[in-house]
Measured scan of single mutants.
Amino acid sequence: AEKTGIVNVSSSLNAREGASTSSKVIGSLSGNTKVTIVGEEGAFYKIEYKGSHGYVAKEYIKDIKDE
């Protein structure tokens, strides 16, 4: 099942092309942005936001229960 997560940073969080800190940054998400978690790979979540996919470090995403 898809989960919703909240970007848990004070400034912004980089979204990357792949599940690695050396992957190209494809965008950034500001704190408290809601994202859909579609998968996980190592220390990263694969997320969907406004129709695009990217990878973000798990430690900066807070899971919330689907309402």
Rank of each mutant, 00 (worst) to 15 (best):
A1G: 14
A1F: 14
E2A: 15
E2G: 15
E2R: 15
K3L: 09
K3F: 09
T4M: 08
T4W: 12
T4P: 04
G5P: 02
G5N: 02
I6A: 02
I6E: 04
V7C: 06
V7A: 02
V7Q: 02
V7I: 09
V7Y: 02
V7W: 03
V7N: 03
N8Q: 09
V9A: 10
V9R: 05
S10I: 12
S10P: 12
S10Q: 11
S11V: 10
S11M: 10
S11R: 07
S11H: 14
S11Y: 08
S12G: 12
L13G: 04
L13Y: 04
L13H: 03
N14F: 14
N14L: 15
A15E: 03
A15W: 15
A15S: 04
A15Y: 15
A15H: 04
R16K: 06
R16P: 04
R16T: 13
E17I: 06
E17A: 09
G18Y: 14
A19N: 04
A19D: 03
A19Q: 03
S20A: 07
S20Q: 06
S20N: 11
S20V: 05
T21M: 14
T21G: 08
T21W: 14
T21S: 11
S22G: 10
K24Y: 05
V25A: 06
V25N: 04
V25D: 03
V25K: 05
V25R: 03
V25Q: 04
I26G: 01
I26R: 00
I26A: 02
I26W: 02
G27D: 04
G27T: 06
G27I: 11
S28R: 11
S28Q: 15
S28H: 11
L29R: 00
L29D: 02
L29C: 05
S30D: 12
S30C: 13
S30F: 09
G31Y: 12
T33G: 04
T33S: 11
K34I: 13
K34A: 07
K34G: 04
K34L: 12
V35H: 01
V35G: 00
T36N: 12
T36K: 12
I37V: 05
I37L: 03
I37E: 00
V38R: 03
V38G: 00
V38H: 03
G39S: 06
E40R: 01
E40Y: 03
E41S: 08
E41I: 08
E41R: 05
E41L: 07
G42N: 06
G42K: 04
G42V: 02
G42P: 01
A43M: 11
A43F: 08
A43W: 06
A43S: 11
F44C: 05
Y45S: 01
Y45W: 13
Y45R: 02
K46A: 04
I47N: 05
I47E: 02
E48D: 07
Y49C: 07
Y49R: 00
Y49Q: 00
Y49T: 01
K50F: 11
K50A: 11
G51D: 09
G51S: 06
G51K: 04
G51W: 04
G51H: 05
S52A: 12
S52Q: 11
S52G: 15
S52H: 12
H53K: 05
H53R: 04
H53D: 04
G54I: 06
G54P: 01
G54H: 04
G54Y: 09
Y55E: 01
Y55W: 12
V56R: 00
V56G: 00
V56T: 00
V56Y: 00
A57K: 11
A57T: 05
A57M: 14
A57G: 10
K58Y: 02
K58D: 00
K58R: 06
E59M: 12
E59H: 08
E59D: 07
Y60M: 07
Y60N: 06
Y60H: 11
I61M: 03
I61Y: 02
K62W: 09
K62S: 14
K62E: 09
D63T: 13
D63K: 09
I64A: 10
K65N: 10
K65V: 12
K65D: 09
K65M: 11
D66T: 14
D66Q: 12
E67R: 09
E67Q: 13
